[in-house]
Write a protein that binds this DNA or RNA. Sequence first.
DNA 1: TTCGAAATATAGCCAAAGCTACATTTTCGT
DNA 2: ACGAAAATGTAGCTTTGGCTATATTTCGAA
Lengths: 131, 131
Amino acid sequence: MTLLEDYVELIADLLKEHGEARTTDIARILGVTHPTATKTIARLRREGLAVSRPYRGVFLTEAGIALADRVRRRHRLVVELLIAVGVPQESAEADAEGIEHHVSDVTLSAFERYLKKSAAGGRSLGATGKP
Amino acid sequence: MTLLEDYVELIADLLKEHGEARTTDIARILGVTHPTATKTIARLRREGLAVSRPYRGVFLTEAGIALADRVRRRHRLVVELLIAVGVPQESAEADAEGIEHHVSDVTLSAFERYLKKSAAGGRSLGATGKP
DNA sequence: TTCGAAATATAGCCAAAGCTACATTTTCGT
DNA sequence: ACGAAAATGTAGCTTTGGCTATATTTCGAA
Ligand SMILES: [Mn+2]
Ligand SMILES: [Mn+2]
Ligand SMILES: [Mn+2]
Ligand SMILES: [Mn+2]
């Protein structure tokens, strides 16, 4: 289940890394068929998050860029939190993809505080191996 | 977004507490309209998780009960984990409702280990107030 | 330059989770 | 016992995220 937010995040990445974001690449990377990607891109346009012309790539609007930034930050914090409490990296990456979309701002702030604390003195908890 | 799993969990609770699970109560508690609840209950029947006869209540099959148990346990662990890392209780309860559906078994095991550890010696991290 | 491959577009279908509107059946109070 | 209120059922619509099949356009290699 790839949400609209994930498209925005990926498109921002592709634009930064390759200067372009093509439908085929988006579909392949997200593991969906290209009509599915096309339809979602149409929604991005409708909602003012992206612009695109037929047979040319997709580009983000200011609003799209802002959303991508927020989504990416939240994604990273969720992965880090999961790893910090001892979730194996692979599971953390996989589960974060779903979990991230249900993390409120309040919860995200708590994650940030926790990560700051555990980066400092929290040596006894989390992904430090077997007891 | 109330998933099938949440219906099963709630129906199990209602059956345990009141001996019956009525469509109206299910709908009211989940905050959906009754046709939505009815439709989901039909899916529960189709998938062998519940039985029901017109105008009588809903009951869970063995499979339904088993699912309810797993879902409830996972729900509780997610809430506890969130609280343990410092998420305010209200946000923990609210966000867990969405997060729970994306927590794999591996991640859930990690949550369990973490909670066991932090119950023992992890006094410096989590919901212990301001530093 | 041209033709085949790759990319893109479009049409039409599905399931889950939601809604409103309306019909029917139970239940309950008088 | 009866009628109104409550509960339940049903029809039909929406959105999001999927799919397959088919048409069209663009691109690249010979
Ligand atoms: Mn995601
Ligand atoms: Mn993500
Ligand atoms: Mn839930
Ligand atoms: Mn739940």
